[in-house]
Each structure stands twice: as structure tokens, then as C-alpha cells.
Nucleic acid binder design. Sequence first.
DNA 1: TTGTAAATCGCACCAATATGTGGTTGCATG
DNA 2: CATGCAACCACATATTGGTGCGATTTACAA
Lengths: 213, 213
Amino acid sequence: MKRILIYEDNAQLREVLSILISATPGFEVVGAKADCRNILAETRTFDPELILMDIDMPGLSGIDGLKMLRANGITVKVVMLTVFEDNRNIFEAIRSGANGYILKKSSPVKIIAAIEDALDGGAPMTSSIATQVLQMFAERHREKRETPEFNLSAREQDVLNLLVKGFSYKLIAEELFISMDTVRSHIKKIYEKLQVNSKSEAVIKTLKYRDQI
Amino acid sequence: MKRILIYEDNAQLREVLSILISATPGFEVVGAKADCRNILAETRTFDPELILMDIDMPGLSGIDGLKMLRANGITVKVVMLTVFEDNRNIFEAIRSGANGYILKKSSPVKIIAAIEDALDGGAPMTSSIATQVLQMFAERHREKRETPEFNLSAREQDVLNLLVKGFSYKLIAEELFISMDTVRSHIKKIYEKLQVNSKSEAVIKTLKYRDQI
DNA sequence: TTGTAAATCGCACCAATATGTGGTTGCATG
DNA sequence: CATGCAACCACATATTGGTGCGATTTACAA
């Protein structure tokens, strides 16, 4: 019996989805909620295999609820419910760990098929949306690359590169064949350009601007 | 005149592509190379608006060539040429900043259309592949999340979370209402578990394990 | 259910090293 | 003349590694 947990603020749709899924052999609705603010506790309580998650909900959006799950290492399958094929929301959902999405206007047959697809490890979504979302992803990727790295000089860049690899000033000096004082001198300039005040801040800011993950 | 640069090790295909594209109004083949090891210099020399890049090439793969471009902040559009709709390669290409791909077996009309699509800001690829690639991306995302964060205790986690936000020990103490020595105590344990010896290393390792970007 | 060991959390002390800040100087290059 | 690179100085703060202790919580065996 596959346990499905539903988050949908529209009472009628929530009811219809519950009835539809409960009536499907092999499926069981373990919960149907109007908002997802307690999603962590509810997920632990009901232990679903898949969550149907509305995107737009009061209090906490479905995407934020999804993020809470993933941030806590909860890998339950999550399929987003959406009114529009709004690829910005869908992109955000996929990027936050959603397995796919279903349009609210879909036929019952399609809804069940999508749930089954997701349970089987698939990614229910229309192909054309997938293409657009992927292109958006590539676009974001490229935007990141275009950001100039803080107008650092070549040597400053060298020093920063070693900093974000965890090198101490001493090790940087040895690696670049310069003195510690020279490293400190460059560091001062780097911190000024990055507008930070510590090595950690410099490292964090640089890693966020780079695709290191 | 849109300048197209071609990288294709198969001499016949390279020739056919050159002729096809040169014969298309508005397009100009500025170069046709059998390998991409000198892609940085060649890109600067020919200044193309779009590169057609074979994936499998001797010496340096097309994906690695693409990575070299992106690592140097070169945002020229790159469309991969592939024999198979092998979504693993395609996934890697998209992830490395490719704008799309073309199957080598495609008709001339489709090849030109794909190039035009990419030049217009599109992402030429079949929708079904896009879906699979996106699902693969979500899968990778989820795999990352499943990695336990070093078996840290709740408090250690609290301290680490602030560390990767750039907090100093002093600020962490203030934030968590504990003494500096307690922070130091937790830090020692954290460094032990992460197998690092400095704040920077801890920050770097943690950010690499998280999807902070 | 109870007792015990281990883990966690908090705190303290010491010494050495690393980092950060502000200032200054000089040489080479464009 | 401005910039980049290298270096020096002094001082204050932050960090690292080591050690020790007590109280509370958690896990596990009897």
C-alpha cells in the first residue's frame, strides 16, 4: 500500500484528490492538509512514500515546505501541484528537489499515472517544460560565470584561489614564493574588493560566486 | 553574418557540416577543427557566435573543451554534436554550460534549425531527453542530500551553521548564548569529525557538501 | 525496569600560532 | 602619475591544540 500525503489549500480539490487516490488500488491517503507549516512532523507521523504538494499555499509555500524536507535530509518523493505550467515556479521546485509536477487541471487518469511514474523513479512533467526548465538552468549557470570576480588582479586571484582551497597565509607564501607580508598585503586588498573582513567571509563569498558544487 | 566554429574529428562530417552551414544565408564557417585542445586561442582568433562541438574527440573531449571555455568566462553558445541520445553525456554537457545538442544523424534542415534556435537563445534538444536529463539532475541533487552531515550532534550542527555564515567564535557564542570556550569545545569536535584543521577548511568542506549555490 | 557507561553539552585554563588592521616604502610598468 | 607587486613594522584580536571537569541525557545490557 503506497502511502500518499496531500497538501492542498483548496478544500474541494483536496477532497477530490483524496477520494481519487483512495479509490485507486495500491494507494492510501494517509493525510490531506490545507497547509504545510508542520510538514516535518507530519512527514514523520504519516511516513508517506510520496507527497502531493500544492505550490501556492498560505503561510508557507509548497516550495518552501519542500525545501524544509530536503534541508532535513528527507528524501520522500514530492510531486508539485500547479495551476499553470509556470516554468519559473517549476524550475524552483525541481531545483529544490521536487521529482516532478502535475497540472491541477489534469484528468484523474493522468494524475494517477503521474503518481505511479514518480513512485517508479520517474519525473512526471511535460517534455516541453523540461526543455525550458533545463534551458533556464543553463542560463543561470552562464549568468553566474559572467560575474567578474571582483576585479582582482592576477596575483590577488592567485592568493584567493589558494585561500578557497583552505591554505593558510604561511602556506600561500610558500606556494607562491613570496613572503608572508606580501600575502597579507594582497589579502588586505582582496578583502577590500570583496567587502569582507575575514578569511571565512572571503571563502564563503567566493564559493557562492563560483560553481564549486 | 553569424560566425560558426566547428569541432568534429570525423573529416567527412566536418566537411559536410562546413559546406552545409556555409551554404546557409546569414551563416559563415570561420573554422573547422578536428580537435579542440586549442579551443581558447581559436575562440579568441575566430570570435564565433556559436560553436558546434563534437562530444567524443581524441586528445580532449568536447565536454572538457566546453568546460575550458566556461572556466574562462567565455559565454559563446555551444551546441554539442552527438551520435547517441546518451543522456549521461548530454547531462554532463548541459551541466557544463552547453546550450543544447544535435544528433549527428539529423537532417540538414534540422541541423540548421537547431543552430538558429540556439542563436536565438533557445535550447535545441528533444523534449524527452530534456525530461530525462532533468530527472537525472534531481536524482543527483537528492543523492547529495542523503549524505549525512558528518554525524554531528545538534549543537555541533548549530555551531557549524554559523561558521559557514562567516561568524567568528565570539559572535557564535553571543548568538547561541554560550561562552567562547564552549564554542571552542564544539569547534574542536567538529574539526575532528570533518577531519579538518581550520575554520576555512571546515567552511569549504561543508559548502561543498551542501547545495549552497 | 534499573543501573551503568558513553555521549553530549557546557565551561575553564594555558600557550603558541594565525589572522586582521593600519600604516609605510620602493621598484617596475603602462 | 597610477597601478601592481613586493616588503616591512607594530599591535590587537582570533584561532588552534592541548588538558581537565561536572551535569545531563541517551543507549544498552542485565
